[in-house]
Amino acid sequence: MPFLRLEVLSKKFGDFWALREIDFSINEGEIVGLVGPNGAGKTTLFNLITGRYRPSRGKVLFRDQEITYCKPHEIRKLGISRTFQSCRPFAKMTTLENVIAGRVFSGKFRLFPQRIDIDTAEELLELVGIAHKAQTPAGDLTLSEQRRLDLARALATQPRLLLLDEVAAGFSPVAVKQAVELVRRVQQKGVTLLIIDHFLTLSLRVSDRLFALDHGEKVAEGTPQEVMRNREVIRAYLGMRHEEP
């Protein structure tokens, strides 16, 4: 039984097909990389899975339950979380408050954050390596720290499936290495991961499988080696490069 399954999922903006008939599934415990050039529809796919957009056609199934038209907070409750390409931290709140906010709206509603919420948030900040910035306003963090914070906030929701949008984009080689370790540690906690990775910095090293999109359509699927040898994928990436002046 696939963990997450997309059936002929399509999304149209006006006359433009952002995604067209995507069939795809993820198994529990996997790390899957979602690759493709700019505008391929990767982030749109995330928005469909997390309920921000309603698909024009098709279905999303999570653990054999249809979630196609669920609201974002319902999908969140079922155990799907995401990070954002632009991080979107709660800028005027502290780093710690950001992570606590990630945690307290998932479970049973309580009026105040509990001790355990604060403790868990601190542990998560330690895990991603920004514990020393706990009392800093999130808006004052560097981009790399904001990406870590975004990850910590998503992890605080205790997801079963985590969608990462460009977590390592623009990272230095050292930072990429740290990110690889971090992703593996997250996987060991029993989280299934789907990673958007335009520049393949992360997914080539950690993914079990890759899934390649171009112009809203699936072009390849398989092990990283297979996908990287795929002519369509090479064309999508290199073709784009060649056309650039």
Partner: peptide, 20 residues
């Protein structure tokens, strides 16, 4: 938590929605 939610909505509504 109500205050936390309201501030989160103010800062980044999309992210607030994403954390539930």
């Amino acid at each position: 938590n109500l205050g936390l939610a309201l501030q989160a909505i103010r800062e980044e509504e999309v992210a607030a929605e994403a954390v539930g």
